[in-house]
Design a protein around this nucleic acid. Structure first.
Lengths: 119, 119
DNA sequence: ATAGGACATCGACATCTGTCAATATAGAGG
DNA sequence: CCTCTATATTGACAGATGTCGATGTCCTAT
């Protein structure tokens, strides 16, 4: 059974849309997509995504990420939570550590939405 | 002579970067790029870009855009200003009217930054 | 069982952002 | 010059956001 629109993660919401340049985005679609764009519209979160993506094995634990910033651990945790909830980062707990990896499909869909050549 | 980094528009700032998934984004690069992403990280602005892009002749005057929203004229003007300052929308005044059109290169560069296959 | 480390959550706070009403500016037509 | 219309700017305000210190939770090792 398919989820209702309200249950969609931001990532699922964007996967269905043709590029913004192709046809007018409805108010509803815009409301669903905007949170995903907001999720990466922050310098710390852009760097987090970038760090995770380019880390060995495509994943990084929070301990690695904390060290890369001059910010408190709760602040990094907060940004990671946002990225995870929006569907951009996947989470996996192994032992005491938590590993994040990027959801490449999410980024690709987002790129398609913005500058995309195909629907 | 080339502009200093501080004079770059957000669009110029993003044009030089490889995809976020390729290598860690520096703090400085993230600070330069984030404003551009923020510029479209709003449902109203996403719809504005979409409306302008898919309008006849690829341009739309403010009067057309105001009518498409249930928002005050100053609010739309504010969002258009943000999009223009970030380099996503180009402005042209003709007579009493002001026409906006999307900077396709800006969107393409942004898409490349996020999900990009090439640098 | 107890201690310690890794990460998340909470509560507070300052700043940023989206919105509006009021007002300003600028061009066109009388 | 005066008025009307289109758009921008200003000032104010509520709500969202980024940050921190303090605390909670969960796992591991001793």
């Amino acid at each position: 059974m398919s989820k209702s629109v309200l249950e969609l993660t931001p990532v699922e919401a964007v996967a269905c849309c043709s590029p913004v340049t192709r046809e007018p985005l409805s108010a509803e679609a815009a409301d669903r997509v905007a949170p995903l764009v907001k999720a990466i519209a922050d310098p710390v979160r852009l760097r987090l995504v970038s760090l995770v993506a380019s880390h060995a094995d495509g994943e990084a634990c929070v301990c690695d990420l904390n060290d890369a910033f001059d910010l408190s651990q709760p602040t990094i945790s907060h940004h990671l939570k946002l990225l995870h909830e929006s569907g951009i980062l996947d989470r996996e707990k192994r032992g005491v550590w938590v590993y994040y990896r990027v959801n490449r499909d999410a980024l690709r869909d987002l790129a398609t939405l913005l500058g995309g050549v195909s629907a």
